[in-house]
Nucleic acid binder design. Structure first.
Lengths: 211, 211, 211, 211
DNA sequence: TATGAATGAGCTTTCATTCAT
DNA sequence: CATGAATGAAAGCTCATTCAT
C-alpha cells in the first residue's frame, strides 16, 4: 500500500470515528457523552481513539469542525455568487434546511456548541466556532446590503435586524424539524423555504395589518 | 411562628437555592455544574440541598420550572387578551425580550433545556418542559388564526410557518443579545420589537423584491 | 466536639493516611504504587484520600515531608548544640541510624526521593527536599569547620570530603541495615555508631598502612 | 554474510537498544520511562524491541546487567591482583569513580536498581543484581581481611564495618558528583580518591580528636 | 525480520449522594 | 432541621504488549 493510500486510510478512519462521535454527542451533548460510548459506536478500542484525537475535547472540536466544513462546502457548491441577493438568501436557507434535514444528528450538536454558556471551559474551540458562525452572519449582512443598494431590499430597516430575523427563521425551522422526528419532513424543505422567503419579503400582514 | 409562616420560610429557602442553581447552571450548563458550586453560591451545606430537592436532576427541573413560571406570570400580567392579535404578538415579543434582557442568566439555561438532545436521559423533565414550550407555540398559533379571521394576517401562509418564523425571530434576537454581552443593549428592546414586527408584517422587500 | 478538637482530628486522619502511604511507597516507589493500595491500607474510600490531599503527587510530597520533619525534630531534641563537634557528629549518626532502624519503611522512600533522576517530573517537590537534604550537609559542614578551628579535626582534608565521607558511611550503614531485614539489628546501633566514629576519626590503617 | 556475522549483528542491535534504554531509564527511572521513548531514542519500531527483549522488565534487567558487566570488566582490567590490599582498595574506588564520572547516566539507574524497595515486583532481577553487588562487597571483605593479616589494616574494627564505610564513602562521592552536574568534576577523581583513602586510613582526628 | 496500528486492563481523579452527628 | 466528611461508581486517559502486514 502506498504512502498516499495510507494517509487516505487514516483520514477515513478519523472520519469514521467522528461520525460515531457525532451520533453520541448529538444524542447526549458533550459532558454526558462517554468516550466509551463513542468507541463502542465506532467499533474500536478506547486506546485507538486516542491515536486519532488528543483528548475528548479535541474529538468534540474536530467533529464540530468536520460538520461545519461539510455544511460550508455544501453551501459553496450550491450558491451562485452572481445571482441576485434574494436568490442567494433563498439558497442559504435552502442549503441549511436541506443539509440538516438530511443530517438530523448534526443539529443537536450545533445547538450545544453555539450555546456559549456550555463552553466557558472550551474557549479555544468556542472562539473558532463563533468565528465561523459570525462569518455566516457577516456574509448574510453583505448580501442584504447589496440587496439594499440594488433595490431589492428596503433601506429603512437595519441590516442587522434583517439578518437576525432571517437567521432566526431558518434556525427555528431546523430546530422544530428536528423536534418532530418526522422522517418525511425532508420533502417539505422547498415549501418551507418558500414560506420563509415569502414572510421575509412580503410580511404576513393582511389589509388591517398594514394600518 | 405559625405553620403558614414556616411553610413560607421553607419556600423562600427553596427559591434561594434555585436562584443560586440558576446562576451556576446558566454559566455552565447541566452536567459541568457541580452541586458543590450551587451550595457554595447558596451559602448552605451540601446535605441541606438534598432536604429541599430529591437530586441534581430535580434541582435542575425545579429551577427551570421556576424560571418558566416567572416568565409566564410576567407575560400574563402584560398581555391584554382583548387587544388585537398583532398587539398581542408584539406584547409576546416584548415580554420575552424584556424578561431575558433583564435576566441574562436565564436564557442560557433555556437553550440548554430546549435542546432535546441533551435531555434523552431526563425524559420526564423534558416532556413537561416541551409541553410548556409547545403551550406557548399553541397560544401563538391561536392568536395568528384569530388574526387571519379578523383580517389582520394574510391567509395564504400556513399558520405554523408564521409562528415558527415569529418565534425564531424573537429567539434569535434574545440569543444574539446574550452574545454581545452589551449591558446597555437592554434599552433597545422596544426598537428591536418594532423591527421584528415591521419585518414580520410588511417584509423587507423593496420595489424589485416584490417582483 | 470543639473546633480545635476537629482540627486535631483532621490532622490525625491525614497522618493516618500518610502512614499508609509511607508503607506502600516504601515498598513500591512512587509510580508503581497505586492509590488504591494506599486507601486499602489506610482503610478509607478512594474519594476520602482526595479530601486530604490534592493528588497522588501531593500525597507523596506530604508523606516525604512528614518523615523529614519527624527525623528533623528527632535530631533537634537529641543534639546538644553546646557539645563538642565530635559528639555532635556522633549524635547525628546515632539519630539517623536509630530513626531508620526503628522506622524501616522510611528509608526506602528516602532513597527513592533523593534519586534525582526519578524526579524530573516533580521539580517543585524535588527542590524542597534537596534543600532539606543540603541543609543537613551544610549543618555538618559547619560542625566540621568548628571542629577544625577548635583542634578536633585535622585541617589538611577538605571539609567537603569529610562531610561526604561521613554522610556516606552513615547512609550506607542505613541502606545495608535495611537490606538485611534483621529485626534485632536495631540493638547494634550504638556499636555501629562507635565503629563509624572510630573509622572516621582514627582511620583503619595498621602499622604498614601508615607508610 | 556468515552465521557468526549475523549473530554479531544481532548483538550489536541489542546493545544499541540497551544504550538507548539506559539514557531513558537513567533520566526517568523504570516506571515513568515509556517503551515508546526508548524505541524513539533507538530509532527502531516498537515491535522490533520485542524481538530482542521479552518485555520492559527484561529490557531493564538486561540493560542493568550490561552496565554492570561494563563496570566489572573495567575493574578487572584495572586491578592488579598482586598489589597490596590498600592499593587494591584505592583501585576499586578509582575505577568506580572514574567509570561513573565518565558515564554519568549510569549512576541514576544504579541507585534505582539498588533500592530494593523498588524491586519487590522484579524479584528475579533484584536477586541477580543483589548477588553482583554483594559480590563486590564480598571481594572487598576479602581484601580487607588480607589487609588485616598482612598488617596494613587494624584488627580491632569489624571487617564488615570497614567495608560498609568504604563502600559508602565511594558511593556518596559518586552520588554527589552526579548532583553537582559539574562537567569538569571528572578531573578531580584522583584527588577525591586520595581524600577517601586518607580519611579511611588515617582518619580525620586532630590532637584533641584522639582523646 | 521489521513494522506501527490496534488493543484493553489499569491508572488517577471527580462528584452526586448518604448519614452519623 | 442542618451539617459536611465519607463514599464508590464511573469517568478520561495511558501504555506495555500483540499481530497482520
Amino acid at each position: 500500500m502506498s504512502k498516499t493510500e495510507k494517509l487516505y486510510d487514516k483520514e477515513k478512519k478519523r472520519i469514521n470515528i467522528m461520525q460515531a462521535a457525532l451520533k453520541i454527542f448529538s444524542r447526549k451533548g458533550y459532558s454526558p457523552a462517554a468516550v466509551d460510548e463513542v468507541v463502542r459506536e465506532a467499533g474500536i478500542a478506547k486506546g485507538t481513539l486516542y491515536l486519532y484525537f488528543q483528548d475528548k475535547e479535541d474529538l468534540f472540536f474536530s467533529t464540530i469542525m468536520y460538520v461545519f466544513d461539510n455544511l460550508a462546502s455544501n453551501m459553496e457548491s450550491n450558491i451562485n455568487e452572481s445571482a441576485n441577493p434574494l436568490e442567494i438568501l433563498e439558497s442559504l436557507a435552502f442549503c441549511q434546511l436541506q443539509f440538516f434535514s438530511q443530517n438530523r444528528d448534526f443539529f443537536g450538536i450545533f445547538q450545544t456548541v453555539l450555546n456559549e454558556n456550555l463552553l466557558s471551559t472550551h474557549k479555544k474551540m468556542f472562539n473558532e466556532i463563533l468565528k465561523k458562525k459570525m462569518g455566516l452572519l457577516d456574509y448574510e449582512s453583505k448580501i442584504v446590503d447589496r440587496g439594499k443598494r440594488e433595490g431589492f431590499i428596503r433601506k429603512d430597516i437595519e441590516t442587522q435586524d434583517i439578518v437576525i430575523s432571517f437567521d432566526g427563521m431558518v434556525g427555528n425551522t431546523i430546530k422544530l424539524m428536528g423536534c418532530s422526528g418526522d422522517p418525511v419532513a425532508a420533502v417539505n424543505v422547498e415549501n418551507r423555504v418558500k414560506s420563509i422567503m415569502k414572510i421575509l419579503l412580503q410580511g404576513v400582514a393582511d389589509k388591517k395589518g398594514w394600518a
